[in-house]
Nucleic acid binder design. Structure first.
Length: 672
DNA sequence: CTAGGGTTAG
């Protein structure tokens, strides 16, 4: 099969020059996006609801900010479809917007009971109600008085509201109700369910909805596939996401902008940087114009992997192609400049945002705070922190954690403590990151008793302790020379209380406690408690490090049984293990099988497979694979030649080795 | 008319 990115091989990737000298007048590119957005806006402003979500406010704010709104508003109001038996929907909506409970709503609606409102009116009314409780009440009301059953659409809208409000039980209830009333859930229903549960990391629920969808024979379309890709992405199963994307393309579905953007993210997370970048070219070649999100996703990929110069290149490419630079782009770039020790540039970008019409948000402030901290501009950081409070910028737990960290660096642990008090008094709850930061600070300040006390308090409080926090405490003990305490903590992981088993496995594996980790891992697998692909990856890593190749394969098989796809690192270790166990055929099967499923791997995986063929002296296979890889535009050709030459050299077939090298030279590979 | 994508802290 052809790797995805192979399809765009004929496209020249522009090589942007690093952009180091940036002035803000050049950043702003007037965009068409703004006018494009206007057409998508709902023109009616909702009255604020008590469970107002993002969309409601966005719509409301947008409606207020548009000059043409009043005209359109009037125009729509005159539209007959919004009037039904002399009932003015806007009036009705605004009056039910004031209601605070179900009874009030019913009372308000009762005069309409005899007007036999049309299904269209009801559904429109429902679709414009963003509050989950009111939309549920409206649905009940329709059920009660209407002569017809509410449509799937009506249910979908209510379901969406209920899910946005994280009312999972109500969601299940609505679904059952649909079944009882013989309303078939459609692709919107399932998409809504799958993504909303997936968003909250309720993967078991999300997957069970997927199963139900399949049982219902709801055919998959682009959005559904995108949802599955997103689900795999959230489960950190990037290989699987890539495999779904390949399947999607092979089945003739053309990915759209959103699907491509998802995949740029996936390739980035799988560290397939070349493939991610190539998607941008591929998009252009199929007429899907990459947007701000495409580019910021790419930016994020480079930032996450500390490839800051590449990020700068992407930023400069964005400007070359007149891509809109928005709030998120600026926030990412403030971070990039900071990471490149260009605090001055970060500062300049931050303070010029308003001039180009972008209002800084809490993320902008938090990022600049960290940049100041990294640059040891502590005075500036404190000043900015207080400025946020004066300017009424909402501060969040990240703001406080960043400041606490800064006080940690200036060794002012009392001030750090005060900040924890301050945040709690302002209703911002400390989280795992706050605790591990302060434990680490106390550890360094020699206040180990205090750190241990907090840790103990957290453990007995019943909150699930995460891996970093646990490790922070272990490190704090070790730093203080209290090795016995550190060991005791590790030992206690064998019987985790408030620590999830997977966290415990991960810590034990990281500490090289192979027996304990193995024991706990087997227990967790048998109990069906291993949900995280990282746990499998951790164990494979551990076993590989200790040359326990049979165990590597054992974990790999369990991982496959559980439906996980291995990433490049795992597959390389697995191929290596098969090689050590002289199970070459099995290696070959796994390698081929995964590629047939559409997985894309790093070059190293292919090179490893070549080496395996060489190790068993199957030179025919070496040549076949070599030729196949030569045709793959994604493989680094120079490295490929060198790897193959090396294989022949090690096998003492010097003629072949020099044949390969000559071929490489003849084709001018070295020069490039 | 209802479903999918990007940014901050240990």
């Amino acid at each position: 099969m052809t790797p995805i990115s192979a399809m765009s091989m004929h496209i020249q990737v522009p090589i942007p020059s690093p952009l180091l000298n940036l002035t803000l007048t050049t950043i702003f590119v007037p965009s068409e996006n703004l006018s494009k957005r206007r057409t998508h806006l709902t023109i009616f402003a909702f009255s604020p609801s008590h469970s107002s979500n993002k969309d409601v406010w966005r719509r409301q704010n947008a409606a207020q900010s548009l000059e043409e709104t009043p005209r359109k508003f009037r125009k729509r109001k005159q539209n007959a479809s919004f009037l039904d038996h002399n009932v003015d929907m806007d009036e009705l909506l605004s009056s039910i917007g004031q209601t605070s409970d179900e009874h009030e709503l019913y009372a308000l609606m009762s005069p309409y009971k005899d007007r036999s409102l049309s299904i269209r009116f009801m559904v429109t009314l429902l679709s414009r109600e963003p509050d989950w409780q009111r939309s549920l009440a409206l649905l009940d009301w329709i059920n009660e008085i209407a002569l017809y059953t509410p449509s799937v659409f009506a249910y979908n809208v209510v379901l969406r509201n209920v899910l946005r409000a994280k009312q999972w039980d109500h969601a299940y209830g609505l679904f059952d109700e649909m079944r009882r009333r013989a309303i078939s859930p459609d692709k919107y229903t399932y998409s809504t369910l799958i993504t909303n549960f997936g968003k909250e990391s309720l993967f078991d629920d999300a997957l069970s909805w997927l199963q139900k969808m399949e049982q219902d024979h709801v055919p998959g379309d682009l959005v559904l596939y995108s949802n599955l890709i997103e689900l795999s992405r959230k489960l950190c199963n990037y290989s699987k996401a890539i495999s779904i994307f390949s399947r999607l393309k092979r089945s003739g579905i053309a990915p759209d902008l959103v699907a491509y953007n998802s995949m740029i993210n996936v390739f980035g997370k799988a560290k397939l940087f070349r493939e991610a970048k190539l998607l941008i070219s591929e998009m252009r070649s199929v007429g899907v114009v990459p947007d701000t999100i495409s580019y910021t996703t790419l930016l994020t990929m480079y930032v996450e992997n500390r490839m800051f110069l590449e990020a700068l290149s992407v930023f400069s490419e964005m400007r070359e192609v007149n891509c809109l630079l928005d709030l998120t782009t600026c926030n990412i770039m403030i971070d990039v400049y900071g990471q490149l020790d260009m605090a001055k540039e970060a500062d300049r970008l931050f303070w010029s945002m308003r001039k180009i019409g972008i209002e800084q948000n809490v993320v902008s402030y938090n990022t600049l705070l960290r940049v100041y901290g990294d640059a040891e501009l502590f005075g500036e950081a404190i000043h900015l922190f207080r400025l946020m409070q004066r300017k009424d910028i909402v501060q969040n737990v990240v703001t406080y954690n960043t400041m606490i960290m800064i006080y940690g660096r200036t060794l002012e642990h009392e001030k750090a403590n005060n900040l924890i008090q301050e945040m709690q008094s302002r209703g911002i709850e400390p989280n795992m990151i706050t605790y591990s930061t302060i434990i680490s600070i106390w550890g360094k300040a020699g206040k180990l008793d205090r750190a241990a006390m907090l840790f103990q308090k957290l453990r007995s409080s019943g909150i699930a302790i995460d891996q970093v926090l646990y490790q922070t405490m272990i490190v704090a003990y070790e730093r203080a020379g209290l090795v016995a305490h550190a060991k005791r903590l590790l030992h206690e992981l064998k019987r985790p209380d408030n620590i999830p088993k997977e966290t415990a496995i991960s810590i034990l594996a990281g500490a090289g406690r192979i027996e304990e980790a193995t024991w706990l891992f087997r227990q967790a697998v048998d109990a069906g408690e291993v949900k995280d692909i990282a746990t499998y990856e951790r164990m494979i890593d551990l076993f590989s490090k200790y040359r326990k190749y049979t165990n590597v394969i054992e974990v790999f098989e369990k991982m496959r049984e559980a439906g996980f796809f291995p990433d490049s690192d795992v597959i390389a270790l697995v191929l290596n293990s098969y090689g050590k166990l002289q199970e070459f055929d099995k290696a070959d099967v796994v390698y081929k099988e995964l590629q047939d499923e559409g997985c894309v791997f790093l070059d190293e995986v292919h090179f490893q497979m070549l080496s395996l063929c060489g190790a068993r002296r199957n030179f025919e296979m070496v040549e076949t694979l070599f030729q196949k890889l030569l045709e793959d535009p994604n493989i680094n050709k120079k490295e490929l030649y060198l790897v193959v030459a090396g294989i022949y050299e090690r096998a003492n077939r010097l003629n072949d080795a020099s044949r390969i090298i000559n071929q490489m030279n003849d084709r001018g590979i070295l020069k490039s």
